[in-house]
Amino acid sequence: MSKAFTKETDTDGDDDGGESTAPALPSGSKNYMTPAGYARLRDELLQLMDEERPKVVEAVHWAAKNGDRSENGDYLYGKKRLREIDRRIRFLTKRLEIAEVTDPSVHHGSDQVFFGATVRYVDETGDERSVTILGIDEADSAQSQVSWISPIARALLKSREGDVVKLVTPGGAHEVELLSVSYPAPGASAAR
């Protein structure tokens, strides 16, 4: 049968079929996010919907007019890109709908660890590290940011400066000592 008479689906081509590579939220938990993280995801969603998707739709429409779609690279690539954009739009929409925006600056001056804290700690070997506890969708390990569901964040949450907490990892249990806890100043979290 000619390819012209087969039905195209959202899973045709090299598409992986998954929503996203972001980790799933633990069952029954909230999708905590800072105001800056929420704004970044919302901006990405609006950019995809208002700018990128219309451009790709226009390119696919133009390519479809050029004849045989089975050998039309512009058409095939455009349809694949359109599926990627639509999948990302669905993912962002779902995550933003369930987002629980939490401003960490309300804890400014506190020595207890809550969501949004930047924590400096030392482990058993004397290595000093600093991490900022953020939401699943906004944490970037390259910038020393960890998700609030990560083992280190779970160990640190609700503890105070000077506390020694047990960090359970696949490599075994370790103790870490909190050296300092800080939060952005009120009004500064939006500039992050």
Rank of each mutant, 00 (worst) to 15 (best):
M1A: 06
K3I: 06
A4V: 05
A4G: 04
T6H: 02
T9L: 08
D10R: 05
T11P: 00
D12A: 04
D16N: 13
G18N: 15
E19L: 15
A22R: 13
A22C: 05
A24Y: 10
P26G: 12
K30N: 14
N31A: 15
M33E: 14
M33C: 13
P35N: 11
G37W: 01
R42K: 01
L46Q: 07
M49N: 03
M49R: 05
D50L: 08
E52I: 02
P54V: 03
V57W: 01
E58L: 05
W62R: 02
W62K: 00
K65F: 00
G67W: 01
R69G: 02
R69F: 06
S70Y: 12
E71C: 14
G73D: 11
Y75L: 13
Y77R: 07
G78Q: 12
R81F: 03
L82S: 12
R83Y: 10
I85R: 02
D86K: 15
D86Y: 13
R88K: 04
R88Q: 00
L96R: 06
T102H: 00
V106S: 10
V113L: 07
F114H: 07
T118H: 08
V119Q: 14
Y121F: 14
V122K: 13
D127P: 03
E128P: 11
I133Q: 05
D137Y: 04
D140G: 08
S141E: 13
Q143W: 10
V146T: 13
V146W: 05
S147E: 06
I149V: 15
P151Y: 09
I152T: 12
I152L: 13
A153N: 15
A153Q: 07
R154D: 06
R154M: 14
R154V: 15
A155L: 15
S159K: 12
E161N: 09
G162S: 10
G162Y: 14
D163K: 01
L167W: 03
L167H: 06
H174P: 09
E175A: 11
E177T: 15
L179P: 11
Y183G: 03
A188P: 00
A188L: 07
A191F: 05
R192T: 09
